[in-house]
Amino acid sequence: MSTETLEAPVKEKEGLLSKRRKKFVTDPLNDDNPITIQVLGICSALAVTTQMKPTLVMALSVIFVMIFSNLAISLLRNAIPTRVRIIVQLAIVATLVTLVNEVLKAYAFDMYKELSVFIGLIITNCIVMGRLEAFALGNKPYDSVLDGLGSGLGYSWIILLVAFFREIWGSGKVFGYPVFEAIGIENFATNGLMVSPVGAFIVLGFIIWIQRSKTGYVEH
């Protein structure tokens, strides 16, 4: 788990997307992925991934919360006393999550019903808290926003991948569209295990295995 605070010296007039800043976005996608390498945010990664659609909504919500909580904490970083920082972080994250929750309730009620408590659980998603602690508390706002975006995207593509395999094997569909019937395979034998929680563990286990053999990361 890498929790070191990145504080590279900022040169004057650094480009908006300089090489150093690009790394904030690209690193969490693979080499420093929040789920498979840093082991953060597993709960929601598994709970919502039976289908692609709720997973996409979840991913977008997390990206939104990540970016804005990172921004808010980073702006306030010099004003927050260290002793109470956890509660300040929780308050900011909870406010953003409430916002997401109310928007979903108003404009996508079915989705809101389906995700039920898991939107609320973004508050305790360790990715959000972990990045706030490790990055936003010690870095400038713009860098923190990029870091939030990167971590959010890294989280998103893993949960979308898990959801893809679970949905296609569990119910033979992609985004609710029956792909196997469309290409002429009738009676595709679906695997009930994939829909159940167990499938998520197994699929994520394989993803971690494959990804770590590629990046060569070994846990001791």
Binding site: T36, V39, L193, S196, P197, V198, G199, A200, F201, I202, L204, G205, I208, W209, I210, Q211, R212, S213, G216, Y217, V218, E219, H220
Partner: peptide, 23 residues
């Protein structure tokens, strides 16, 4: 345990198998 599977990977599989037992 194979190197890339060490730590989190194998734990995921174990948890999955335990989940089957709890099912």
């Amino acid at each position: 345990v194979p190197d890339p599977l060490k730590g989190l990977g194998i734990t995921m599989f174990i948890t999955g198998l335990m989940g089957i037992a709890f099912m």
